[in-house]
Design a protein around this nucleic acid. Structure first.
Lengths: 341, 341
DNA sequence: CTGAAAGCGCTTACAG
DNA sequence: CTGAAAGCGCTTACAG
């Protein structure tokens, strides 16, 4: 079998004995064209399985109908839920999505940004690589192409940003622990001053303040490249303290799971002796025993929202850069690693 | 700030007082062009930050340098490892990747196939939706565009297929159980005659045959839409038997984890009373307690291999359809849910 | 070694 | 209501 030849406007025009212009307009429902002609044209197009060459029309109109997405790592469950939202919303708006992984590498991230632009994407959706130091290259492209950031964002980049209510979510998580009688609540956060970690810590602090509980810096732990094994290590540190905490709030689920593993190993009763709360509602949070209390982040909604704003900017370009932050609401899920209120 | 105008060949040509043709050839290292001219042209291109318009050149040369990927669900960890491989390999070969989810919906899958073609992708990479009944629409597009299938494949589609050594992997898993003294090994598989499930069952059967162990159909369980909760249910069924199995081989990790949860609940000792082996080496397999013995599937390699073959077909189109199956080797990982040999 | 010209498939301002 | 023509940015066969 040979490749089937694509049916083009030219071909249709020839068969209909009309001009290419008329056929194009008929297919696009141009008001100038008579109903009769439109019907004739559409009938033949249908019959011949005509499909418009999107590359050609995009090329002509300077639109590719492709959005670029850059995320640090596609293997994180939460990232995949955002991707789902992005894919779905983009599809329903008539856009395709090109995905790239920055692998948390700043250099790579810059490179992807460049490549995406060369590939003529209409707009870019981006979650920042961990430890991104210089946002210069991003600021540079900002005037050139619509950019919306999501999840991992930065105050230093004036663009639309879609995030969760980090501070409030953390506040609620800590408040929950306080409400169940805990008074000495440790936090495991990131050394890197990431947007997420900073905000969650702020929520932790505010909860202590509002409930008049002093913060003991000995149980405020920071770690680089937060992960399950780091959670384990931090838990070991906390267990070795003279005054142990009665609860641990880890700003990621993986760290929280590491904590639970460490506590289980030393037969610490959860949540009686030490309660644990994580952040993300990853799949693993229901696999670990006891099941992890955690903050559910609506990844799908974040993805959808980000696409919505991006496409808006693509289709109605603004003259000026606008910093706008959209906060998507989270939801605390209480499981067995903390007391029900 | 206004949008920066793209630098084009025309612009460069004007500044250099050369023709567009010459500039184009110089940039593409055409042998006809003098070294001197090449250098002059490249210097200016560099200085002006010229980036070729890939849409235009692709349009001209009927190549988009974009590959389409269709998978049932991006949220499965194993899928993301394949995606990583796909993204990396594609990037290194100079291709971008458009991703779509079929959501295990046959209709949607057909639709995506069509849209991808309209978008002018150079080739398609596809993992079949569960319960795909009719492959007719896929057979139809086969002569039109290079297609490589991976992971979820079908015998009925004559194309390059990249899979793991399903049968052998299952054989090894069951052999391992036999080697550790288990003789009454249950299997939890899919009702749907999926390629994966069928092959794994064949491996299960062959292991029994080679070790002269009779297969008892009472402990060969099938379930639709295999999942954690189905694993749980099947385990309950097995526990209620008069002659309980001494091992359970679940053909997916999620089912195996459901099994472990059920066994834990009834205080069945793992692996002493009943050993458990899964398939996939998902993240959760190390979170569950006891940690799950499972078959590690090299997703990254599957993805890379699939892209390699696809790009080959894109760049050197064949006249005829070729059915070629590439098997990527797996690796059994023994953890605490079964005995070390 | 270099240039003028055609053309990829489409859209759209201009003309009638 | 319809058509001829220009043009999006690039590549390449043809000519010199």
């Amino acid at each position: 079998m040979k490749k089937r030849q694509q049916v083009t406007l030219k071909e249709l025009a020839k068969q209909l004995e009309l001009s290419i212009s008329t056929v194009s307009r008929a297919l696009n429902n141009h008001p100038d064209i008579s109903q009769e002609t439109k019907e004739k044209v559409k009938a033949l197009a249908e019959k011949q399985h005509y499909v418009p060459n999107i590359i050609a029309s995009g090329f002509r109109s300077h639109r590719s109908h492709i959005l670029g997405v850059i995320v640090p790592n596609v293997s994180h469950y939460f990232t995949t839920t955002m991707l789902k939202g992005i894919l779905d919303e983009a599809e329903s708006l008539g856009y395709r999505v090109i995905i790239s992984e920055s692998k948390n590498d700043e250099k790579k991230q810059e490179e992807m940004l460049r490549t995406m632009m060369h590939f003529g994407v209409d707009g870019i959706l981006m979650a920042l690589a961990r430890k991104t130091k210089s946002v210069e290259s991003i600021l540079n492209i900002l005037p050139t192409i619509p950019l919306v950031m999501f999840d991992k964002v930065s105050d230093k980049i004036p663009c639309t940003q879609v995030v969760i209510n980090e501070e409030e979510a953390a506040f609620t998580a800590v408040e929950h622990l306080i409400n169940t009688g805990k008074r000495r609540i440790a936090i495991i956060k990131e050394t890197e001053q990431s947007f997420n970690s900073k905000k969650r810590y702020e929520g932790y602090l505010r909860a202590h303040q509002e409930y008049n509980i002093p913060v003991d810096q000995k149980i405020v732990l920071s770690t680089e490249d937060i992960s399950m094994s780091k959670g384990r290590m931090m838990a070991n540190v906390l267990l070795s303290l003279k005054e142990r905490p009665d609860a641990i709030f880890a700003i990621t689920d993986s760290a929280a799971i590491g904590v639970i593993k460490a506590l289980n190993r030393f037969n610490v009763e959860i949540p009686k002796e030490i309660a644990v709360v994580g952040f993300s509602n990853s799949v693993s949070s229901t696999i670990i025993s006891p099941a992890l209390s955690t903050v559910d982040q609506p990844g799908n909604k974040i993805g959808r929202t980000a696409v919505k704003y991006l496409v808006e900017e693509v289709e109605q370009p603004k003259e000026d850069l606008i910093t706008k932050t959209i906060e998507v609401k989270t939801n605390l899920i209480v499981r067995d690693s903390s007391y029900k209120a």
